[in-house]
């Protein structure tokens, strides 16, 4: 499976934010994009996921295994996303939050998946808990497993990292965008170290092979 971002440009009003960004991500590869705040990382993620809203506009192709996602609505792209906030639904329990994105099927199988996810997240017995009673770390884990249980093809997430200074001397923003093609539950979430560095479309990108 290959996720191909081809000639992607993003604009806000007359300002060109991202120009002709092209990158190809193979199955299992994790790419981290870094750049100063306001350079278009979140907007690129929104463009890939299909919810870039005015005044931001974008063009270019997002191809997953030869299928151009640009013409599909957000809910049909199977792009898993994690946001800076956990965004757990407050009216649903932890178990119901996890079930929310699991494709339809037999209830017992889906419940089994929830139990498995809770065990992997070291949250056994939390199924009926109100998300409001969880610590921020526990909430983040539930949000991660909720995203993975929806069986996304590529998975994108924003993460906060300490302020970085790029080699050019530009103060880097505190967020990075990571794209991981073929995210597999539950192996996607592992500490990464950047192996290669390259610069593309105004971002600094690094890639590593996931486990």
């Amino acid at each position: 499976m290959t996720l191909l971002l081809e000639n992607i440009s993003l604009t806000i009003g007359d300002v060109l934010l991202v120009k002709s960004f092209t990158i190809s991500i193979e199955a299992g590869e994790i790419v981290t994009l870094m750049g100063p705040s306001g350079c278009g990382k979140s907007s690129l993620l929104a463009y890939i996921a299909g919810d870039l809203s005015p005044p931001m506009y974008g063009n270019g192709h997002v191809t997953l295994d030869g299928v151009d996602l640009v013409y599909l609505p957000a809910e049909q792209r199977h792009v898993g996303r994690l946001f800076q906030d956990d965004l757990l639904f407050p009216h649903l329990t932890v178990g119901e939050n996890l079930l929310f994105g699991v494709p339809r099927g037999s209830l017992s199988k889906r419940q089994h998946l929830v139990s498995e996810a809770l065990a992997s997240a070291q949250l056994e017995g939390f199924e009926d808990r109100d998300p409001g009673t969880l610590s921020s770390g526990q909430r983040a884990r539930v949000a991660l497993f909720r995203a993975l249980m929806a069986k996304p093809k590529p998975c994108c997430w924003m993460s906060r990292s300490p302020s970085l200074t790029l080699s050019s001397g530009i103060r880097c923003g505190t967020m990075s965008l990571r794209i991981c093609a073929n995210a597999k539950f539950p192996h996607c979430w592992s500490p990464m170290t950047a192996k290669t560095h390259r610069r593309a479309g105004g971002f600094s990108a690094s890639a590593t092979r996931g486990t």
Binding site: A49, D51, A74, E75, R81, F83, L87, F100
Partner: peptide
């Protein structure tokens, strides 16, 4: 936020 996360989970 909930709208975006729900869409990413496959909900129209």
């Amino acid at each position: 936020g909930h709208f975006r996360v729900s869409q990413s989970l496959g909900h129209g």
